[in-house]
Design a protein around this nucleic acid. Sequence first.
DNA 1: CAAATAGTGTCTTTTAGACAATATCCC
DNA 2: GGGATATTGTCTAAAAGACACTATTTG
Lengths: 251, 251
Amino acid sequence: MAASTGASTEITLSSPSPQPTDDTGHAQSSSASAEVPWQNRPAVAVDVVILTVREGRLEVVLVKRDHPPFEGLWSIPGGFVRYDESLEDAAKRKLSEVTGVGDVYLEQLYTFGDPGRDPRMRVITVVYYALIRADQLRLPEEPGSPSYQFCWAYDLPPLAFDHEEIMRYSLLRLRGKLEYTTIGFQLLAHEFTMSELQDVYQAILNRTLDKRNFRKKLLMMRTVEPTSHTRMVGPHRPAQLFRFNPHAAQS
Amino acid sequence: MAASTGASTEITLSSPSPQPTDDTGHAQSSSASAEVPWQNRPAVAVDVVILTVREGRLEVVLVKRDHPPFEGLWSIPGGFVRYDESLEDAAKRKLSEVTGVGDVYLEQLYTFGDPGRDPRMRVITVVYYALIRADQLRLPEEPGSPSYQFCWAYDLPPLAFDHEEIMRYSLLRLRGKLEYTTIGFQLLAHEFTMSELQDVYQAILNRTLDKRNFRKKLLMMRTVEPTSHTRMVGPHRPAQLFRFNPHAAQS
DNA sequence: CAAATAGTGTCTTTTAGACAATATCCC
DNA sequence: GGGATATTGTCTAAAAGACACTATTTG
């Protein structure tokens, strides 16, 4: 409760960098106000909702809690933000710990910070979500490491903390972005068949789509373009391969 | 740099709430990991982008910085989050300080936290934006209080910190939400004329709209419905008053 | 030729957008 | 009647959605 010991800034209430008093009266910009709470600051974490499409289903990586609170429940992987690390870097670090992959689609979702969301202390968590191709993703399985698991995003077990709310919001955002961005291509290789693309969309939206309308729309929007390759997988007609066209008009 | 003085939590590395070690190995959920950085935690702030429509223009409330860094530049109002206060409550508190109004539309926008965005220390700021009717909004003008000012959102002066980026993103989000939500009604009284509504849309989008198509769309979507009232303001035909219909389908 | 998936076209409905004349009020 | 703003309808183009059959390959 006592005043803190300064730390690595040069906050003073007089020159050379006078700070306006805050908190009761009128404050200036957040990045500038004083009465800096050097102790009793909330902790800042990132959580990363790692999503992939496997076997036609949208799945999320969860980690089992092996201690209280919420021991035994599943939760979204996360960790604290280091002092000198950007939020996105913290999310990438966490992502890399869990998946071994660093260079994937990663987007900030929302920041959850209600007091009491963690019963032990105040934790403000900046949630990111990541999209990774299933073939790039392998979860740690060493003994002693936490147990990770894929779960179908549309039938989740009870989750720890406010992580059910986080998942609801993640899926809402992902479905929304699917309609007016090209986010879906993050879950496919460079070349893909129309069926594979449609499977990704169907997995995310959790409903079937009409094959003809789906192809028509993506081709007319110039979002995808055919390559000169085809692919044979099974005793049936081979499939044309397509690639994403990054210069297409977005909706 | 010295350790802080404990504060109001009960974090230990052993029972009764053992924490998993984090940071190098595999972490559990963010809301649970240890190596709690009791000192050197980033500060957490909220900034509030306060928007209104005045005289047909979308305007934002800015505050002038009267000390370094960025002394003399304008900035978005903000302040630190208290330990026991939700992020939204912190934003409401700041909003109330600046405007005297508490019960308005407020939505979380994005969290900005790059190290170095504030040259003095690590500040992670959760940005909210608020929509307030101009007639509800009066800025403090007492001597000694910071100087606040309305600025046209589409012709801003140079801003402090990363606040120009924050403004760009705010306007992008607001324009986006205008199309698929009823957010625009936050800037009008309970009853309003079509011209008033169109003015709000035009101010936010910063372009003119066709009167006939605008009316047609909002009436067909059942977003607005006529009341039995009219309003006379000038030597010309009186205007029908409409109200927002909260049960309309949200395209 | 059977099985399996790939590929294709039409019609209807809805939505978006361009466009100009009349209505109602006060003075 | 003049000035000012409110109100209204048609036509076209684009997009969304329902719907069923043919094509190509292997074994």
